[in-house]
Computed example of a mutant assay.
Amino acid sequence: MARYTGPKTKIARKFGEAIYGEDKSFEKRNYPPGQHGANKRRGKKSEYAIQLMEKQKAKYTYGILEKQFRNMFKKATGAPGITGTVLLQYCESRLDNVVFRMGVSPSRSGARQLVSHRHITVNGEIVNIPSYQLQAGDVVAVREKSKSLDAITSSLANSSKVYEWITWNTSTSEGTYVSVPARLQIPENINEQLIVELYSK
Rank of each mutant, 00 (worst) to 15 (best):
G78A: 09
A79I: 00
G110K: 07
T83W: 01
S105Y: 01
R94S: 05
G110A: 10
T83Y: 02
L88S: 09
D96G: 01
H117P: 02
A111D: 01
T83C: 01
A136N: 12
Q135D: 13
T83P: 01
K74A: 02
S116C: 01
G78Y: 11
L95S: 04
S93A: 15
S107A: 06
F100M: 07
V139L: 11
E92P: 07
T83Q: 10
Q135I: 10
T85H: 14
S109W: 00
V115E: 07
Q89S: 08
K75C: 04
V104N: 00
F73E: 03
M102Q: 11
V86C: 06
V127G: 07
T77A: 02
V127Y: 11
T83I: 14
V86I: 14
R112I: 01
P80I: 03
V98C: 08
H119L: 06
C91A: 11
I126K: 15
A136S: 15
V139M: 13
S116K: 07
I126P: 11
D138L: 14
T77Q: 12
G103P: 05
Y90P: 06
S105Q: 03
F73G: 03
R112Y: 03
P106V: 05
R118F: 04
C91L: 15
P106W: 02
C91N: 08
S105M: 01
F100E: 07
V99D: 03
N71Q: 14
Y132M: 10
F100Y: 15
N97E: 09
V127E: 11
D96K: 02
L88P: 10
P130F: 15
P130Q: 15
Q89E: 11
G78R: 15
P130A: 10
R101T: 01
M102T: 02
L114D: 00
S116H: 01
R94F: 08
E92N: 13
D96R: 06
T85W: 07
E125F: 10
